[in-house]
Simulated scan of single mutants.
Amino acid sequence: MRTRGKQPDVPAPDSPWSEIAPGLWMGGHEFRGLSGQLESAVVNRQFDLVQTLLRLPGHGPDHGVEHQVWPIPDGPLDGKQLAGVIRLAEAACEALDGGRTVLVRCFHGYNRSGLVVAHALMRRGRTAESAIRLIRSRRSSWALHNDLFVDYLRAGLPTARLLEELTD
């Protein structure tokens, strides 16, 4: 499994966030700017709802912007963590249905945010494979490079959650 912590060759994205589907954005906390240098991705009021899977101080959002935080590792998740991912995807879908914009973010905006965004897309009718392809085409070919997260999506997060809870 390739993850940020184990693969120093994973490049930072070229943009702070990317629109995956209308109103549904995926991003991170740092990106490579036009100068080639790493820059902080700071959210102010660009989105109506920000979902954060890795919280770093000083990255926003502004006071008054709805902010849901559910820290999870970029690795194996237990049943409780998977349940939180499912809840975030449900909340993202509800916000989108209400005409709101949503940013789901993690460190680079590849794996953890990809898991939530893919599940939201699947709740809206896409297959796992279609959701993964769309995310990779809109965000980066590095998106969802965590093979375990892809396996979770292919099995279905509710199924993966039940299986994880059986082993807890």
Results as ranks from 00 to 15, higher is better:
residue 82 L to D: 02
residue 15 S to W: 12
residue 104 V to F: 00
residue 89 A to N: 06
residue 78 D to R: 01
residue 123 R to G: 08
residue 131 A to W: 07
residue 25 W to C: 02
residue 62 D to I: 05
residue 24 L to M: 03
residue 55 R to S: 09
residue 31 F to I: 12
residue 28 G to D: 14
residue 34 L to N: 10
residue 61 P to K: 01
residue 145 H to M: 08
residue 39 E to A: 14
residue 81 Q to G: 01
residue 25 W to H: 05
residue 72 I to P: 00
residue 75 G to K: 09
residue 165 E to T: 10
residue 100 R to E: 12
residue 27 G to D: 10
residue 44 N to K: 07
residue 150 V to Q: 10
residue 44 N to H: 09
residue 57 P to W: 15
residue 49 L to N: 07
residue 90 E to H: 12
residue 163 L to S: 10
residue 32 R to C: 03
residue 54 L to T: 07
residue 160 A to W: 04
residue 110 Y to T: 01
residue 50 V to E: 00
residue 82 L to N: 00
residue 153 L to G: 14
residue 141 S to M: 09
residue 7 Q to A: 03
residue 97 D to V: 13
residue 160 A to C: 13
residue 94 E to M: 06
residue 41 A to P: 01
residue 68 Q to K: 11
residue 75 G to F: 02
residue 41 A to V: 07
residue 11 P to N: 06
residue 53 L to E: 00
residue 63 H to R: 14
residue 14 D to A: 07
residue 143 A to F: 13
residue 155 A to K: 15
residue 33 G to E: 14
residue 39 E to C: 06
residue 41 A to Q: 01
residue 28 G to I: 11
residue 63 H to G: 10
residue 64 G to D: 04
residue 122 M to Q: 13
residue 74 D to A: 09
residue 9 D to H: 11
residue 116 V to F: 01
residue 161 R to E: 14
residue 29 H to S: 04
residue 11 P to F: 05
residue 1 M to N: 12
residue 64 G to Y: 13
residue 35 S to R: 12
